[in-house]
C-alpha cells in the first residue's frame, strides 16, 4: 500500500525524478570521494608503520614524530636519556617488554651535503645520517643489498638511491662495492628505490640524489632534525603526551602523531585552520617524507570538503522523506482508528 503511494507519487511528479537522480549522483560522488580519501590516507607507508610494528600483537601502538629546528642541539645522548623516560612511562602503565623484545622502536636522522667518489666518478648528494632503525620507518624498496641494521659491526656502510648508484657505478646491483667520502672508504650496503607516490616525488624534487649512512659519520655536520618513535598507546594520546612532555624539543620543535593524522577530525581541523600552516615561525625544515605527508593532508582536506558537500543533498532528501513518511503514517493510523470506531 505504502509502496504504491510513493511510487504513484513519484511517477506523477517529474521533479521528484530529477531529485532522485541528483541524489543518486551525489551519493555516487560521496562514495567516490570517500573511497579516494581512504585510498590517499593509505598512500604513504611511512605514516602507518605503527600497524606494521604491532604485527600480530594485541597492543595498540602509535607512531609519533618530532621535528627539530635546523640549529637544534639535541644529541644522541639526549635520545638515550629520553629512551629511559619512555621505559619509565611504560612501566607506569604496567607495560614491560619480554626478554629479547622491545615495546618500542625509534629512529633519528640529520641531513647534510656530501661528495661521494668512486674512482673518477663524483656525486654531490643529500646525505641522511640515520640511526639503525630508520629503515623500519622508511621501508624503501631494496633494489639490491640490505639496509643499515642494528646488527652492523661497521659504521662505514652506505645505502644509495637508484640515482646515486647509477651516477657512481652505472648499475643498481652494487651492494658490497666501495666508494669514498672525503678520502674515507665506505661500503655500499644496498640500493633503494625511492618512494614512487606523487606527493613523495613532489616533496623530493629538491633532493634528486639521496644516500643514507650511519648518523655517527656525519654527526658533527648534521644536527638531529627528526626523531620518530612507535610505542604502545594504551589510551588515546598516551604516546603523544609522553613524547611531548619528555623529548627535548625545545621551544621551536614540533611533535605530531602520525598514526592519527589522516583521520577525519584531524583533516577537518586542518580545514578549519585553513592557511595557518603557511605561516612558518618555528625554523623547522621538514624532511621530505613529512612534506609529502603535509601535501597529502592538504589534498585530503579538499577531498573531505567535496565529500561533505556531496553529502548535503542526500542528507536533506532523507530528512524530507522521513518527515513526509512520518506524516503519512500518522494520517494512515488516524484513518484506521476512525474506520474501526465507525465499524464498532
Amino acid at each position: 500500500m505504502k509502496d504504491f503511494h510513493i511510487k504513484d507519487f513519484l511517477l506523477k511528479k517529474k521533479i521528484y525524478c530529477i531529485l532522485i537522480l541528483l541524489n543518486a549522483l551525489c551519493l555516487l560522488a560521496f562514495s567516490i570521494f570517500s573511497f579516494a580519501y581512504d585510498g590517499l590516507s593509505r598512500q604513504l607507508l611511512h605514516e602507518h608503520q605503527a600497524e606494521i610494528w604491532a604485527g600480530e600483537s594485541e597492543e595498540r601502538y602509535a607512531q609519533v614524530s618530532c621535528f627539530l629546528p635546523a640549529d637544534s642541539s639535541v644529541t644522541v645522548e639526549d635520545i638515550a636519556a629520553f629512551r629511559q623516560k619512555v621505559d619509565e612511562k611504560l612501566l607506569e602503565v604496567s607495560l614491560e617488554a619480554e626478554e629479547g623484545k622491545s615495546l618500542y622502536i625509534d629512529a633519528y636522522s640529520g641531513e647534510a651535503k656530501l661528495n661521494l667518489k668512486n674512482g673518477d666518478r663524483l656525486a654531490n648528494v643529500h646525505a641522511l645520517g640515520v640511526s639503525e632503525n630508520y629503515f623500519f620507518f622508511h621501508n624503501l624498496f631494496l633494489r639490491s643489498g640490505s639496509y643499515l641494521t642494528s646488527w652492523d659491526l661497521m659504521q662505514d656502510r652506505i645505502v644509495l638511491d637508484e640515482n646515486t648508484a647509477w651516477n657512481l657505478f652505472g648499475s643498481f646491483d652494487v651492494a658490497g662495492m666501495e666508494l669514498s667520502i672525503n678520502g674515507k672508504p665506505f661500503v655500499v650496503a644496498g640500493v633503494v628505490k625511492r618512494d614512487q607516490h606523487k606527493v613523495s616525488k613532489l616533496a623530493e624534487e629538491s633532493t634528486p640524489s639521496v644516500v643514507y649512512l650511519d648518523y655517527s659519520v656525519i654527526a658533527d655536520q648534521a644536527p638531529i632534525r627528526c626523531y620518530e618513535l612507535i610505542m604502545p598507546n594504551p589510551i588515546s594520546d598516551f604516546a603523544f603526551s609522553v613524547v611531548k612532555e619528555n623529548f627535548p624539543i625545545g621551544e621551536r620543535g614540533a611533535v605530531l602523531e602520525n598514526s592519527s593524522r589522516f583521520r577525519v577530525p584531524r583533516i577537518a581541523d586542518l580545514f578549519f585552520d585553513y592557511g595557518k600552516r603557511l605561516m612558518q615561525t618555528d625554523g623547522i625544515i621538514y624532511p621530505s617524507w613529512e612534506n609529502a605527508a603535509r601535501l597529502l593532508e592538504a589534498r585530503m582536506s579538499w577531498l573531505l570538503l567535496l565529500a561533505a558537500i556531496s553529502a548535503i543533498l542526500p542528507l536533506c532528501s532523507i530528512l524530507v522523506v522521513m518527515v513526509v513518511l512520518y506524516r503519512r503514517l500518522h494520517l494512515y493510523i488516524k484513518e484506521k482508528i476512525m474506520d474501526r470506531r465507525i465499524a464498532a
Binding site: W53, G55, E56, G100, S102, L103, S150, W151
Partner: peptide, 12 residues
C-alpha cells in the same frame, strides 16, 4: 639469510 630478509617488530 641476507640481512635484508630480517625484520623486526614488537614481537621480535
Amino acid at each position: 639469510v641476507p640481512n635484508s630478509a630480517l625484520r623486526t617488530d614488537a614481537n621480535g
